[in-house]
Design a protein around this nucleic acid. Structure first.
Length: 905
RNA sequence: GCAGGGGUAGCGAAGCGGUCAAACGCGUAAGGCUUAGGACCUUAUGGCUUAGGCCUUCGAGGGUUCGAAUCCCUCCUCCUGCACCA
């Protein structure tokens, strides 16, 4: 018996493939090429089952295409670019317990940890090697001659990235500008989601500042709804808060809450603290409304949050519940006259909202949300709104800022959508980075080009394409560089390092030359040399570059890129954009395959969670193929649950096949119809399996090739089939169909079959239409149904049967039956069928009685009879009794596909 | 909030207008084999029946159709992404 969990078998075949260099393809003009990749992983920890899920999916495709006769390239590099490796190294140095625990879980020794603390590069290299050995151990058919790492640690790669950015810049797709980021003022770094203890997902939101003059001073009110300035009645401040004066560009003196100093200083260059003021002194004074020059009182209101915006708020009671309520309480006796400036077809919107949600803080918040949404969606500016009158609120944005600018009353600032706290404990703010390099993904022409690319790409599953197109719509400029972290410096501004999502967009092209590039010195890899290799720009031809150019032309474009869904709207979209910008249309990628996440007992495998389910640990318990059975867990983008118990099913099928292989030489019985049936039926599994693999539906593929196919062989044997020729065909088909999924064990069984050729070098099975016999398949189904029926009947009778008579329906009945079938293939509407057939036969009534059970499978009287006759002895044996098969029976109950059963006991 | 994808038996997962009580797998139960366990084999696994039958289900509620898990509308709920983070 083969030990299914054996690692020996894994190693044996891995060595065999490697010895024959089956995964190190060379240019071969006689073969069609197929180039497939998975995004480069970041080697900051061990590979876990979640990784394996994705890579196995790619490997299966690679092996499948290889068997289909393609010259397949499946390379794998590693991403060193970014901050975390350095961060982790630091944490180890600081002896952070969580980090140390996670690495010890992964089997890292204390000595190695010491090295990691000293040099982050050693950490990355350690896990690169760890990934590589895991990839090998689970049988990835990767070409390791083309592996590489990114960042300045690889001069060749850095040159490649410099070339990419120079090229983008020449095309006008790089720009310099201002950019708001969430920022920690203590650590002086941007706060990504992962750097926060609170406020994940919160982002900068633009506020308009409207400047209200008060003598020499300005009260800047921050608002999300500048159009309501036409309905402003007063200004709110919070008497309990501290206020200060800031000197702004143009020597303006702004009165703002002290909480907003840092924000404004970080956002508006030139903003400087001038002095403290006592806000109480201003309550009761007036400011000028920039819109019409009218005087508005400054009033105090407790609910004004000095921490949001500037701490100065304009009050628009008819359109803001807080203000409405504020006027009712604090501004009662001021004689203010609220003005309505937006019509939504409901005069009492604001009152109703407040009544509905209540006057508590939360109630007013909800009411605000409600009112804002209604007014934004349906509101029209009315005649009180000056130059905006008649415009939809939705469309008013540009006009209002222009209007305010003309009055010199406009400024802007950013506020967070919610509270953010850095890991260091500091409250996060929005900072506007003045000089930042962007990739201009907002560029209209570029978007159009990328849209065209996406429309021509094949995606699995199909919905991915829609998602990509939608992402193109909202995508904005992306900051492409930062300070610190590993990477490649911007070629024209060496202070900046190109950030990780931007230096990993076109490296698939680099694979094509990664194995031969060392024939050059990095310095020989000039922009014009790269222009020649990748873009075919003339003038740089020389013998050394010729070979690289050839490699690129042979392997590119990329035929398939595989990954999990979380990369879709970031990495993938950039990958597509950059290809559209840099490469000729003939080198645009062809297809994308996206999968969901692997969950284990309902939880997804993240880096921290994955620490306990590493490949290494998996391999202690299971063989590579048993683990690869993971890939059979799902079909589309949904998350899939991996149940280790299901491996039992895999083991069973493998040992079943092994047993059959051992028995085959002794089986020499021929059964005309049964043999023909199996050869016909096997086509179903070949086509289902092929189609499913092609569409990345591995669940379905394995279901067909591993389970349904063996079930069919079982049935064949149970019915007395014993033809070694037929079984040999079946087993060979089984091995080939399953080889992409379970390459090791199938090679082993293939050896047991004494086949000379490795499966890895064999052809993938194709359907043999000449063997297809649908009527026979239908009739066999009839037969197995009858067996079931007899079984239940015998159970009912409770005494052993003496004789069973099976009476087959008359030929005329079959004819009418098949007429119905022919009609049912067009429509199953019983009224229609009846109209066409117009027979008074009561068989018609019976068959059409239940519309959902109208037969649609063709049957044949002769075949039915021959099949039952051929298998007659088998029935006798099963039920230990005599069987009589009657043809052309007058038995009323006998129906086509449903012989009448008579049991004598 | 915006965009995309889901919600089917104890679990995983097919089906995407008509033999659907629901493929396939796991699990569970009974029986066989075995000294025993495991493995393996057989049978069962929505309900009610018991001469090959019927009924009810596919997140909830409506609608279209001779016919809907499948198409349309509303709602509930879960997953993913939303950018300087790999």
């Amino acid at each position: 018996m083969i030990d299914v969990t054996s690692k020996e078998i894994d190693k044996k075949w891995q060595m065999e493939w490697s010895k024959r260099k089956l995964f190190e393809p060379k240019i071969d003009e006689s073969k069609k090429k197929f180039f497939i990749t998975v995004p480069i992983p970041y080697p900051s920890g061990s590979m876990h089952l979640g990784h394996m899920y994705t890579w196995t999916r790619a490997d299966i495709y690679a092996r499948f295409m290889r068997m289909k006769g393609y010259n397949v390239l499946f390379p794998q590099g590693f991403h060193f670019t970014g901050g975390p490796i350095i961060g982790i190294s630091k944490k180890i140095e600081q002896k952070d317990e969580k980090t140390l625990w996670a690495f010890k879980q992964q089997g890292v020794s204390d000595a190695d940890l010491k090295l990691f603390a000293k040099d982050p590069r050693l950490l990355a290299e350690y896990f690169t090697e760890s990934f590589k050995s895991d990839f090998k151990a689970i049988g990835m058919s990767i070409d390791w001659t083309r592996t590489f790492i990114t960042s300045y640690l690889n001069e060749y790669y850095s040159r490649f990235i410099e070339w990419q950015f120079n090229t983008l810049r020449k095309k006008g797709l790089i720009s310099e500008g201002r950019h708001p980021v969430v920022w920690c003022t203590k650590e002086n770094t941007p706060l990504g989601d992962h750097d926060r203890t609170e406020g994940e997902g919160e982002s900068p939101q633009k506020f308009t500042i409207i400047k209200f003059g008060c003598g020499e001073l300005i009260f800047p009110a921050a608002t999300l709804r500048p159009e309501t300035v036409f309905g402003v009645t007063n200004i709110w401040v919070n008497e309990g808060a501290k206020y200060v004066v800031l000197t702004m560009p143009g020597n303006e003196q702004w009165v703002v809450s002290s909480d907003s100093i840092k924000k404004l200083e970080n956002q508006i260059s030139g903003a400087v603290y001038a002095r403290d003021i006592e806000i109480k002194d201003f309550v009761g004074k007036t400011v000028k409304n920039p819109v019409d020059g009218s005087n508005l009182p400054i009033l105090a209101l407790d609910s004004v949050d000095s921490d949001i915006g500037t701490g100065v708020v304009m009050s628009v009671p008819m359109h803001a519940p807080f203000d409405f309520y504020g006027i009712e309480t604090s501004g009662k006796d001021m004689g203010l006259t609220p003005k309505k400036i937006i019509d939504v077809g409901n005069e009492n919107l604001i009152k109703e909202a407040i009544n509905k949600y209540g006057k508590t803080k939360d109630g007013l918040k909800a009411a605000t949300k409600y009112v804002y949404k209604k007014e934004f969606d349906y509101g029209i500016m009315n005649k009180n709104a000056g130059p905006l009158a008649g415009m939809a609120v939705k469309a008013v944005d540009e006009a209002v800022s222009k209007f305010l600018e003309e009055k010199n009353a406009y400024a802007e600032m950013y506020e967070l959508t919610g509270k953010v706290v850095c890991r260091c404990g500091t409250r996060g703010i929005v900072k506007v980075l003045d000089k930042q390099w962007f990739i201009r993904y907002s560029d209209k022409e570029w978007k159009a080009k990328t849209r065209r690319l996406v429309k021509n790409i094949k995606t699995y599953p199909e919905e991915v394409s829609l998602q990509l197109l939608n992402t193109i719509e909202w995508l904005e400029d992306k900051a492409a560089a930062r300070h610190g972290g590993l990477g490649t410096a911007l070629p024209w501004d060496k202070d900046w390092v190109i950030e990780p999502l931007s230096d990993s967009t076109i490296y698939m092209a680099y694979y094509t030359i990664a194995n031969t590039i060392s024939s050059l010195k990095p310095s020989e890899l000039t922009d014009s040399a790269l222009d020649y290799i990748f873009l075919g720009k003339e003038g740089q031809e020389n013998r050394k570059l010729e070979g690289l150019r050839k490699e690129f032309l042979y392997w590119y474009p990329l035929d398939m890129r595989v990954s999990a869904k979380e990369l879709l709207q970031n990495h993938f979209i950039f990958f597509l954009f950059n290809h559209a910008a840099i490469f000729g249309e003939e080198h645009w990628p062809k297809a994308i395959g996206i999968n969901g996440w692997l969950t284990v007992s309902g939880e997804k495998l993240s880096k921290s969670k994955g620490a306990t389910l590493t490949i290494k640990k998996g391999l202690e318990k299971y063989s590579a193929d048993q683990l690869r059975f993971i890939a059979a867990a799902g079909n589309g983008m949904d998350d899939v649950e991996w149940d280790p118990e299901s491996i039992n099913g895999f083991n069973q099928r493998i040992s079943f096949i092994e047993q059959i292989i051992k028995r085959v030489p002794d089986l020499h019985k021929k059964s005309a119809l049964l043999d023909a049936y199996l050869l016909s039926k096997i086509n179903d599994f070949v086509s289902k399996s092929t189609e499913s693999i092609e569409n990345f539906r591995y669940e379905s593929a394995v279901s067909a090739s591993l389970f349904e196919l063996t079930n069919e062989i079982k049935l064949y044997l149970d019915l007395g089939g014993a033809n070694s020729e037929v079984l040999t065909i079946c087993i060979n088909t089984f091995l080939k169909l399953n080889h992409p999924f379970f390459p090791h064990i199938t090679e082993e069984l293939n050896g047991l079959m004494q086949n000379k050729e490795l499966l890895e070098s064999s052809d993938f099975p194709v359907t043999k239409t000449e063997n297809k016999n649908e009527i026979l398949e239908n009739e066999l189904k009839v037969f197995t149904n009858i067996l079931e029926d007899i079984k239940t009947l015998i159970k009912l009778i409770k005494t052993p049967p003496l004789k069973i008579t099976l009476s087959l329906a008359k030929k005329q009945k079959f004819e009418l039956y098949n007429k119905i079938v022919a009609e049912a293939k067009k429509t199953k509407n019983p009224i229609e069928i009846r109209r066409v057939l117009r027979s008074s036969d009561n068989l018609l009534d019976r068959l059409l009685k239940n519309p959902s059970k109208i037969p649609d499978r063709e049957l044949d009287e002769e075949t039915e009879y021959l099949l039952f006759s051929e298998l007659k002895d088998q029935i006798s044996k099963t039920f230990k009794t005599n069987i009589e098969i009657k043809k052309e029976s007058t038995e009323e109950k006998a129906m086509p596909g449903r012989p009448a059963i008579k049991i004598e006991s």
